[in-house]
Amino acid sequence: MIENNELTLVLILVALAATLAGRLLAKRWRLHWRSIPAYVVLPESAADAVESDNRIHFSMGSSAIGQASTVSALVTAELVYRLSQRLVVSRQTPLITVSDPVTLTLAQDTLRRAYEYRCRIERYHSRAAAWYPQGARSLVFAAGVSSLAADADVSRSVLLGRFGYELALLGESALRHGQVLIAHSDRIEGQAVAFAQAQQVLIGEELYVGPAYMNGRLIEQGSVIALDLLRWLVIVGVLITALQAL
């Protein structure tokens, strides 16, 4: 049983109400979001990769369906899908790497849907999504993925989801092979490495608003408003608690 059940329920209900209200707002008015440089660079990178006939490597790290990182796996898959829709018109198939076998099927399905969207399903092959076992410290995964990405001659590495220190190995290999590196991690150690290594970094919750920034649907824009509202509620809550403690 979850502790603080009432709080959890309230949080879910507030998020639900704010998302639906945000959807209505987005439908009525054109909303302007603050700029997140990585979401400016990502579509440009996809366009550049198509024009220059280069490959892009996406990695979801250890984001895993059925575990605590399920949501980060789903959001990353959605972002990969939207970018792959642009990439699959080229000869070069995007490369997706994962370390969770259930997420592997999601990655394969994401690519298949992108090819289907462009009516090029005959060019899809499931080998474009690759699984590497995680190992005790995820370094096996990092070593396998770096080697595969280098051999596949990718021009950009987009690492989104759950990574630990092993991100340093992935990032170093990407930069050594002249790849543009865009990274995020929902774990603190991976986030710190991403900040130091990547040309463009997504921090914390910025990953979860990604779909709204890339041809977002109304409900996704509503989610951004809900996230902002929840953030302000937390800030007010922290301030009130701090003032009470004085």
Partner: peptide, 25 residues
């Protein structure tokens, strides 16, 4: 701060999944 942000992001996307509005799967 980062972890709270990740948690809130997870809740908002989770709500979208519960509404059947997340298309990734």
């Amino acid at each position: 701060g980062i972890l709270i942000g990740v948690g809130l992001g997870t809740v908002t996307v989770g709500v979208r999944v519960l509404l059947g509005q997340d298309r990734s799967y």
